[in-house]
Design a protein around this nucleic acid. Structure first.
Lengths: 115, 115
DNA sequence: CTCCTTGTACGACTCCTATCGTACTAGGTG
DNA sequence: CACCTAGTACGATAGGAGTCGTACAAGGAG
């Protein structure tokens, strides 16, 4: 993998409910990535995230908060991102290792061909 | 590629209207493959097609004809399959080379993880 | 405590899409 | 010609998903 794998501190909050690796289904992942806004979110996370994960506000998306909640929830339900609650903020990062293990090469497609 | 690339005779009918390779968009391909029925169609074509392409009836899908027309059209509009009219029949095959050129590894995911 | 911030929950609205019945067209066969 | 067959076209329906406003909950700062 050419993108950075995020390292989570051991004392980080537990992830919010999410599907296990063996529960990931290709139809669901395809479905959730078929939306341009969500594809852009995942792509930005893969390309620009650095040492840690990010809040919804970091993406600079010009949409109401309730819309963003909807999309981040969809991404988490499909198993594409992992979310943790840090006080006020809910931070997200792509489940790179899980997705790569189950669907090798998928994230490469997202990074290369999202334009 | 491990699946068979179909060879079309030179005197075959022209393909029905379809997007060019450079018009293929990842969101559209993801969207069209997010449907379980369509994912199954593409997977079956990749795994079981032999020397030539196939009619709608070959798939043995227990759905009305109008439903099948709808799904095959969606696959063609997204650029996943190519269709040619042979007299009465309309035969389909996956655009393996085009998809592999634009989204390398995508079809591998479909074949391996459609269960 | 009060105020601000981050994000959720709920509901409404709209649009898209999957499904299917029916009617129809085109090509092939006798 | 009549008849069958593969598939389209059209329309109706129902369910799902994207969008968003509003109200609300929880954490942090003063």
């Amino acid at each position: 993998m050419s993108w950075k794998v995020i390292e989570i501190p051991v004392d980080a909050p537990a992830p919010l409910p999410e599907p296990r690796v063996d529960e990931l289904r290709l139809e669901n992942v395809f479905g959730v990535l078929a939306d341009p806004l969500r594809l852009g979110i995942v792509r930005k996370l893969l390309l620009e995230s650095e040492a840690f994960d990010h809040t919804c506000g970091w993406f600079g998306l010009d949409r109401p908060k309730s819309t963003l909640t909807h999309h981040f929830r969809a991404l988490r339900d499909a198993g594409v991102i992992r979310q943790r609650q840090y006080g006020l903020e809910r931070r997200s990062h792509v489940r790179v290792e899980d997705l790569e293990a189950r669907f090798p090469g998928l994230l490469r497609l997202v990074v290369d061909r999202a334009a």
